[in-house]
Every structure is written in structure tokens, then in C-alpha cells.
Simulated assay, not measured.
Amino acid sequence: MELHQVVLCRALYAEAETYLARNDGVHVGLTVSIAQDAVELFLRAAMKDRPVPGRKIADDFISCMDYIDAAANQDENMYVPFRAKLIELNKARVNFKHYGLIPDKADARRLLGYVGDFFDVAAKRFFDVEFSDLSVVDLVTSTAVRTRLKDAERSLQEEDLEKVFGYSAEAVDVATGELVALLSRRSSRWPLSSSMRFDDAGARFVRDIEGYVDNVAAASERMTIMLALAVNINDLVRFESVVPVMHCMAGGHYKWDRMQDASALTISDAAFAVDFATKFALAVQGRMPHSD
């Protein structure tokens, strides 16, 4: 079963949703283009999963649907669903890619809705899985980040919201730290307390200064990375407003401090936090020269 490809489709679909949240025409066009790529990847996975003897694997989008319908052997329950809507999607993608015609944002939103409907039906029809159950987290190669995202997903299923927010925030912090570690080999920004002698009061003062500067520098690095990765600012603001503050303790363990009232936070906020953290982890991963 080509299930790994279907998980990639889930990642592409999520990426298309991200582009739609941006306000310029190019990203609206990319929404349609990436959504079409996700559908075509799915169709090719379905073709590999049920080959037609003596028939060549199709090259173009429409022929992919023809191939799958032929493999159904007149069983309409195994035809490609929403065919007409997918053809409309493909036409919009061709217009953007080949002729530079940018779709209206409302049209792009409608087409992306068609793609969501397609995946909901087609994933069950061809692979006997619920598309919403597929986890993009499985594409994250960093063990430390993936483990935390898995913990966040499991907590979401259990509706333990504070753990969802905490593990999601940890995942973002760890992913950020891995990228910062790659960019900077400094073991300490202000190694004064280890290189100079102070009395107890002086040592505490210097360590406090070091901690303050380190926190400011870390926040600056974090924001620089967010901007470099083109993270949606509105999403970042929402994420920061729902997750607790992270304090990394000795040994890599985290302490969570809830600075704001969490009583109004909902399961929707928790699902958003996991989604944001996952997309961020994949964005960081895409900039890494290697993974563990």
C-alpha cells in the first residue's frame, strides 16, 4: 500500500492551506497549484496500488483519473470521486502555471474545499483510511521534535488541553533550538561566570545578567527564524497566545509556566497548536542539511 505517499498528500494539502492564509496573488495561485499536486500525488499512489495489466501508467492528470476508473472495472464505487471538480482545479492550476492567470481568492478557497472533500472520500475508498487520521507528524525526522508532536497529538485525542499546548510549545522550541545549534557553535553567549571569580553575591548577579541576556538573545533568534521561514504572523501571534511559556531545565526537560488565563481555550485552539507546531517543524526540517 502506498500509504506514505498519502501522508505526503496530507502535508501538501496543509501547505496549500498555509498559502491561502497569505494575502498576495502569487500565494493564492500557489494554493491552487500545490492542492493540484496533492491530488495528483494521491492519484498516482492509487494507480500504483491497483495496476491495470497491459496498461501504461498515465502521464497527465486527466489520464490518471481515466486509468483509475478503468481499474475499477465498471464498479462506480471505485471511480475517482468529484471528477468534474478536480478537472476545474486542474484548469485553474494550468492557467496559473502556464499563463500567469491568478485565481480569485474566493475561487481558490472553493477549489481547496473541493480538494478536502475529495480526500475525505478518496482516502477511505482507495486506502481504507480516514484522511483526517493521517498524521503529518510521521514526516518529521527529528526524533526529539517528533516525540513531542506525537505526545501533543495523543493528548489532543484525550482532550488533555494543557498537555497539548505544552508539548506543542516544546516541539517548536526544540525545533528552533536544533536550527540555532546548526547556525551557531557558541556554547555560551556570556561565559563570564565560568571564567571569572566573584563572591557569592557577585556570582548570582552575573548569572542573572547572563540569564537575562541569554533569554533576550534567544527570543531574538527565535523571531529571526520565524521571519526567515515566512511563518504567518497571525498564526504565530495566536500560537504564542495559547501556549505556556517554556523554561528548558537541566537535562533538556521543560517547565511550563501559564502566564495567561487558559479557561477560555478550546479543543479548536489545541488542534491549531498541534497543526502550527507540525508545520513549523517541517519548515525547519526543510532548511536542515541533514536529519537524525
Rank of each mutant, 00 (worst) to 15 (best):
E2T: 00
A11G: 02
L12W: 08
A16K: 07
A21Y: 07
H27I: 06
V28F: 05
G29K: 03
Q36Y: 01
V39N: 06
V39D: 08
F42G: 12
V52D: 11
P53F: 12
D60L: 10
M65W: 03
I68C: 13
N73V: 05
K85N: 06
L86H: 00
I87D: 12
N90W: 03
N90R: 11
F96Y: 15
I102A: 05
D104P: 01
Y114M: 09
V115W: 06
F118V: 07
F118C: 10
V121K: 15
K124C: 09
S132V: 14
A144Q: 12
R146G: 04
D151C: 02
R154T: 00
R154S: 15
L161G: 04
E162W: 04
V164A: 15
Y167T: 03
V174C: 04
G177E: 14
L192P: 00
M196A: 15
F198Q: 12
D199A: 07
D200K: 05
G202Y: 04
R204H: 06
G211L: 13
Y212H: 11
D214Q: 05
N215V: 02
A218K: 11
A219E: 14
M226F: 05
L227V: 09
A228K: 10
L229Y: 05
E240A: 10
E240C: 04
S241C: 06
V245I: 15
A250P: 03
G251V: 02
H253D: 15
K279N: 14
F280M: 13
Q285W: 03
R287C: 13
S291P: 01
